[in-house]
Write a protein that binds this DNA or RNA. Structure first.
Lengths: 142, 142
DNA sequence: ATAATACATTATATTTATTCTAAACTGTTG
DNA sequence: CAACAGTTTAGAATAAATATAATGTATTAT
């Protein structure tokens, strides 16, 4: 893997030693052709399918959270029963299809810059996220 | 209570019979001077403090969810360990102070209209929510 | 009014995501 | 190669949300 060094660096910067399990997690997350959304459980399954390495839930949780802290992953602000994460850390937003439980990226260019005029003393904005909930467009909507 | 009829109507429209417990829930939610944010547990505590009626968690969950379906309450899209709800159902957004776990309303006028240019075939937008995460504004931020 | 029915309430059990724990393991350093 | 610091893991603990089933209450028709 030509990417291994890159992953080792990402791990080191996140304060984690590069172990077999963690490098496998990196491969799945950052080696993909496209960015994608995932839950922790889904990520564990992908790793199982794609490699012979078994990785425990706890390791995946720890690694994912370390990467979020560093900005290598993003958490998507949804009130779902489980947390959704995104390998696309660029500035963008989401549709959430509430009927199909499906997330769809909205490219930054498709949303006008969200400009918040109000400030809170002593605080600064870390992130601004837009979630647009969508539903079927039948006339008979309730 | 002059409001009782109003609450009975809200309940009926939500498909719920007006019972003692549910009317108490209405009083706490809709009788307040200001709109407010709450979790289910907090709501149960407020009811306990403010009345002699004891209301079970299940009843509160059911009633709150029926009201959300009808649009009398809103769920705030946050990945917190528990769900936050809002009695302010007008169009507005939120700051979420990640360090203090505190929600602050952003009035509609303080955010430019969020205009999403992209559409999904067969789907329509039900709601658009902006969450701005805020943190302390020390120079020494990490 | 009252009886019969349908719906509510409750305490408790269940489910499930997430976090914690402690024991076994790995890899690095002296 | 011994000692140490950090890892991994299975399983336990935690806690929110939902389901259950017995008891209670509102509604309806009589």
């Amino acid at each position: 893997m030509a990417y291994a060094d890159q992953y080792i660096e990402k791990l080191r910067k996140s304060g984690l030693r590069p172990t077999k399990q963690r490098i496998k997690i990196c491969e799945v997350l950052f080696d993909a052709e496209k960015t994608f959304h995932f839950t922790i459980k889904e990520l564990v399954k992908i790793i199982e399918n794609q490699a012979n390495i078994k990785v425990s839930l706890a390791t995946v949780y720890n690694t994912v959270h370390a990467f979020i802290k560093k900005g290598y992953l993003k958490e998507i602000p949804l009130n779902a029963s489980q947390s959704y994460y995104d390998t696309n850390v660029s500035h963008h937003h989401h549709f959430f299809d509430v009927e199909e439980n499906r997330l769809i990226d909205i490219h930054q260019d498709d949303v006008d810059e969200v400009n918040i005029k109000r400030t809170i003393p002593g605080k600064k904005i870390r992130s601004v996220e837009v979630i647009a909930k969508i539903v079927s467009d039948n006339q008979s909507q309730k």
